[in-house]
């Protein structure tokens, strides 16, 4: 393989990794900061993909028109889910309820659209072909868009938490719920809003995934797993670390694909076990955990 191909592979790996970072962000925030065990996360990613598909291919809407609808819809779904089914702080109850929600969502999608895999976009996304030593560098514009969106969402979300009144209130509730309540913050409502916002990130992740990959009712399993893997590497609730961990996983995944594709999943999950064993707080964890840092 020449330098141009190697560079193409690395750029693609980083772009895929940024998508992994984005996928893990909402999961990390829910799990690490809000202390919500959301096992329906992957199922909601999958449902978001199908909503995009239905909007574009059945309702004939432009993809950009579906995006705001999906984002608003997901905010309310997240808010209502926390306000109704997930009021209990008991993680066991949360796991059982969200697992049930995931099963129901998958069954409903199967019932309505069937199991036939679908692609949101026909044809090939546009590319840049750049002359490079010993060949041509091929860069998919969609991959670069994914990288840009993932970075923007994660930076924007961090800034939102640190610079806005609502973000600071979420941080206050996450850090010390009772104290926040004493000074007049409606802690329950703020956690509902925080959960709703994490669903907005889920919606954006599902949009970016649906632009690149095949839609299947079981597609969420993989993204839930990869989200969890990235979170563990980054340290639960560490959003910035989640992005770096996503890039790292993307690169390791690419290297595994080049040298030992058959062992790709095994390599990733051995890494997962090693990190859980030797660095249980994650590789990119700072001295402050997300519950303090957000």
């Amino acid at each position: 393989m020449n330098l141009a191909i190697w560079t193409t592979i690395v750029i693609n790996g980083l772009c895929t990794g940024s998508l992994f970072g984005l996928v893990s962000a909402a999961f990390s925030f829910q799990f690490g900061a809000l202390r919500m065990m959301n096992f329906s996360y992957g199922a909601f990613v999958m449902v978001g993909m199908y909503i995009m598909y239905a909007g574009v291919n059945h309702l004939g809407l432009h993809a950009m028109a579906v995006v705001p609808i999906l984002i608003v819809l997901y905010f309310f779904i997240g808010y209502l889910l926390r306000a109704t089914l997930l009021k209990s702080a008991d993680p066991n109850v949360q796991i059982i309820i969200t697992s049930g929600v995931a099963l129901v969502l998958e069954s409903v999608v199967l019932f309505i659209v069937g199991a036939l895999p679908r692609s949101l976009l026909a044809g090939i996304p546009p590319t840049w072909k750049i002359p490079f030593p010993e060949g041509i560098l091929v860069i998919s514009k969609l991959n670069l868009l994914t990288f840009a969106v993932s970075s923007a969402v994660l930076i924007g979300f961090s800034m939102f938490l640190k610079r806005t009144w609502l973000g600071m209130t979420i941080r206050a509730v996450v850090q010390q719920k009772e104290a926040a309540s004493v000074v007049g913050v409606d802690a329950e409502r703020i956690i509902n809003v925080g959960f709703g916002i994490s669903f907005v990130i889920t919606a954006i992740a599902s949009i970016m995934i649906s632009l690149q990959f095949v839609l299947e009712p079981t597609a969420g399993h993989y993204y839930q797993l990869i989200g969890f893997l990235v979170c563990v590497i980054a340290g639960m609730g560490n959003l910035k670390g989640g992005f770096y961990a996503g890039l790292l996983v993307g690169l390791i995944s690419t290297m595994a694909n080049i040298f030992a594709a058959t062992w790709h999943d095994a390599i990733l999950f051995i890494l997962f076990v090693i990190i859980l064993t030797f660095l249980p707080n994650g590789v990119f964890v700072s001295s402050k955990s997300i519950s303090r840092a957000v």
Binding site: T8, I9, G13, T16, Y222, N257, T262, H264
Partner: peptide, 11 residues
């Protein structure tokens, strides 16, 4: 041969 859930085929 590769796992079914492979996402990136550049390599």
């Amino acid at each position: 041969g590769y796992p079914l859930d492979r996402k990136d085929f550049t390599a």
